[in-house]
Design a protein around this nucleic acid. Structure first.
Lengths: 316, 316
DNA sequence: GGTCGCTCATACCTGTGAGGTATCGCGGGC
DNA sequence: GCCCGCGATACCTCACAGGTATGAGCGACC
């Protein structure tokens, strides 16, 4: 049985007349008669009653036509869905991201992406840079948002794009001696109890900090660790010590906290997107395109900081 | 796009290999490659990634395959449903019946029919013989169970089958003078206040009664009318008078009622099935077949009364 | 009641295209 | 570098979808 048979049967049912159905199908009447006869032979039942008053479906014909209609619907739906999937309008995007990406990058990208791709299922999971990179190479994620390009096993299969730059800031509670200062020096920081992100989670960030505080590794080794920027800020607000984090962390500021730039101005590893090099997912491509677009529209009106996007490979 | 393309695409997806898919389809590999290429051209998207490690659906391909599978399912379902409908296993049967058919005929036929045709939607509506015949010719019913073959406009388009015979009995309350009698005569009945079925509802029954009581038409003209056997019995129990009805009415007897045969033994119009002569519905045919079968199985062990089935035309 | 007209079925022809065979191009692995 | 496996390409062939001509059945109508 071919789709042709279904189309012909539906045309006959619609027009109740072989001649007119054939005309509507753009073929002659005899071939239509024969195709219907072939179909009836294959199904094993007469599907139409040919009466002088017109052609009407038998009980078997009526029962045949409903699923036949659905089958043709599904066939055209297949073509439509293939096109939509190819354009990235449907599908799924599994994104792993660090919490600080929620402060500036994701807000600027997610809203327009959702607007332009409402039928894409976004699966967003907050996780550390290290975990998202591993999940990416295992195929459990399609996109990772983290700080610093992934290194280590499988990293050469990934491609990274920088989507944000931040420098180091410190956050303290309003009762802390630094509260009210515009800047604090590295030397001052080295004498504080620090609150930092765990080494396992953010190797690039920790390596950078270790290099900065080379004379005060003790400060880092005895530091309090917190996985989330909000936790770092909250602990600082409690007076636990001086939190260290990216400058975008200011967006999560609370009335009982104070932020100081660190001098000298100290860039942190870039906020980067990573995805598998061989990933041809149109949804991923659409998301990256949206990232580029939102970067340029943000860059034009004013400062390019945090909006610079440059493509590079993680392999080395 | 033809069903062939869907089958081929599904085979390629399943085997992840053009050669093996072609073998499974019973064709050579080159035609399969070409059909897939044709399909991709028609859809406008590449559906499969041909890699050295195997053939895998692209995002568009994956989106295509799901509805394609459903389309093929619907196609085979169409053939199956046509067969089931042709065998009367699915469909609808709208039956109009007089209340007394619930006493003997319908109980013997409906249970086995439902058991053998569980997916047929039975629409059962209690109505008078006159109304069911009219609804039948208007196409609002498929089958009518009534007393006496339909006459009048449209009756020649109907076919009737006798499914039950009854003779006249009378029912009285236990306080009535006839209570305890085995039989009462027509003459005795003519002196009673009667409870009978309305003339509009059951013309054949009323005509028969009128002929019987020719000397006592007054008794009929002043009779109480009740549409339903249960109402006739109930009114008789209340002492309103002597109810007249078919012998199968005994099956609805109550402790406060008494039934007497009428002498001489007086046959009532047959209980008949009617259906449109041009109705080719397999469900109807299956129901009639079930009727015949249950009649013969009931006839064998004992009395054939009420089970005799004879086919005849209502036209005259 | 014979004829006409309408409609679907049948007979037969034709051209397209599905499927066959042979072969090429291209990676990957030894 | 060579071989092997796999999909693509080239070309052929025949089945079958579709075309034309005509037949068969059945109302309608004069």
């Amino acid at each position: 049985m071919e789709a042709r048979h279904l189309r012909y049967a539906l045309a006959v049912a619609e027009h109740q007349h072989f001649g007119r159905a054939a005309a509507a199908l753009g073929i002659a009447q005899p071939p239509l008669s024969r195709q219907i006869a072939d179909l009836e032979r294959e199904v094993g039942e007469r599907l139409f009653d040919r009466t002088p008053g017109g052609v009407f479906p038998t009980a078997a014909g009526a029962a045949f036509l409903a699923p036949a209609r659905r089958a043709l619907c599904e066939m055209s739906a297949a073509a439509v869905e293939a096109g939509r999937a190819a354009r990235g309008e449907t599908g799924r995007l599994r994104v792993g991201f660090i919490g600080s990406a929620l402060l500036r990058f994701l807000p600027s990208v997610l809203a327009p992406f959702r607007r332009d791709h409402p039928d894409v299922r976004l699966e967003l999971r907050e996780m550390s840079t290290a975990r998202s990179a591993a999940a990416l190479t295992r195929g459990e994620l399609d996109l990772a948002v983290g700080r610093g390009a992934p290194r280590g096993a499988g990293a050469e299969e990934l491609v990274t794009v920088t989507v944000g730059r931040d420098h180091l800031v410190t956050v303290v509670g309003t009762g802390h001696p630094y509260a009210g200062l515009k800047t604090v020096s590295l030397a001052q920081l080295g004498r504080q109890h620090l609150i930092v992100t765990p080494a396992d989670d953010e190797p690039a960030v920790r390596a950078g900090l270790r290099a900065l505080l080379e004379d005060n590794t003790l400060a880092l080794d005895t530091a309090t660790e917190a996985r989330d920027v909000h936790t770092i800020i909250g602990l600082a607000a409690c007076g636990v010590g001086a939190g260290l984090g990216p400058s975008c962390m200011r967006a999560a500021g609370r009335p009982d906290t104070w932020f100081c730039d660190v001098t000298p101005r100290t860039p942190l590893p870039d906020l980067v997107l990573s995805h598998r090099r061989d990933d041809r997912s149109p949804v991923l491509a659409a998301f990256l395109e949206e990232t580029r677009r939102s970067a340029t529209t943000r860059a034009r009106p004013g400062r390019a900081r945090g909006a610079a996007v440059s493509r590079s490979d993680a392999a080395r």
